[in-house]
């Protein structure tokens, strides 16, 4: 190992390739912890649905399907756009990467905007689970409240992940504009891409749990 290391390479690594692989491995491990984090949430969904099936189903019927579905389409698109940017930087097309990042972050902002609108609608309809006058009544009130606890915790946690993702993607765009990345080195682009796709995938799992399963039963 030589003492004069490549730019961006920390001294404990043999070369840039060694460091890039390690960074990507680190992100994958972090995503593994995220899987367990959301896994716990999905476990509560299973438990609550088992104990209060009617109320839980009734609660799910109150969700705003069109916003959830639009958001699903938006997120899938955003991951595709980001992947285009990643493909571009591998052949050194920096401008393309900047545009893709900007578009991805923009879609992310629209997602959050729609999410805020959705929460607004929910609150207007008295679907806040701690509300004194909760929309669902009778035998379905208890299970309905459980569903809406799950709904708000899940969507809020996902939105926090989205917000972090938007900041990260914007940061990639700024760095790309500054000319930090090229065909030979773009590890942060790959790492943030992994994170963004994961947040996207969480929504792919949450979407049926929130909007679909309840409507099918």
């Amino acid at each position: 190992m030589s003492e004069d290391v490549a730019p961006h390479t920390h001294f404990q690594y043999a070369d840039a390739r060694h460091q890039a692989d390690s960074a990507i491995a680190g992100m994958w491990l972090f995503l593994a912890t995220e899987v367990l984090f959301f896994g716990g949430l999905i476990l509560t969904w299973i438990f609550c649905r088992h104990w209060q099936p009617e109320g839980f189903t009734a609660g799910a019927h109150e969700t705003v399907l069109w916003i959830g579905t639009t958001n699903l389409a938006l997120l899938l698109t955003s991951s595709f756009v980001y992947a285009l940017g990643q493909a571009a930087i591998e052949v050194g097309r920096v401008r393309m990467l900047v545009w893709c990042c900007a578009l991805t972050a923009g879609i992310g902002v629209v997602f959050i905007g729609l999410k805020l609108l959705e929460w607004h609608i929910d609150l207007d309809e008295h679907l806040w689970p701690a509300a004194a006058r909760f929309k669902l009544e009778g035998g379905e009130a208890a299970g309905g409240r459980l569903f809406w606890v799950f709904y708000f915790v899940a969507t809020a946690l996902h939105a926090v992940h989205m917000a972090i993702g938007i900041v990260a993607v914007a940061w990639i765009a700024l760095r790309a504009r500054r000319g930090d990345f090229g065909a030979h080195w773009h590890t942060p682009v790959t790492v943030v891409g992994l994170y963004w796709s994961f947040v996207d995938m969480v929504w792919v799992v949450l979407y049926p749990l929130i909007y679909v399963v309840g409507r099918l039963t």
Binding site: F47, C48, A142, R145
Partner: peptide, 15 residues
């Protein structure tokens, strides 16, 4: 004061 571990709304403290 409402949540998935609350037995009053059918939540489960054992969870």
């Amino acid at each position: 004061h409402v949540g998935v571990f609350d037995p009053r709304i059918g939540g489960d403290p054992l969870l």
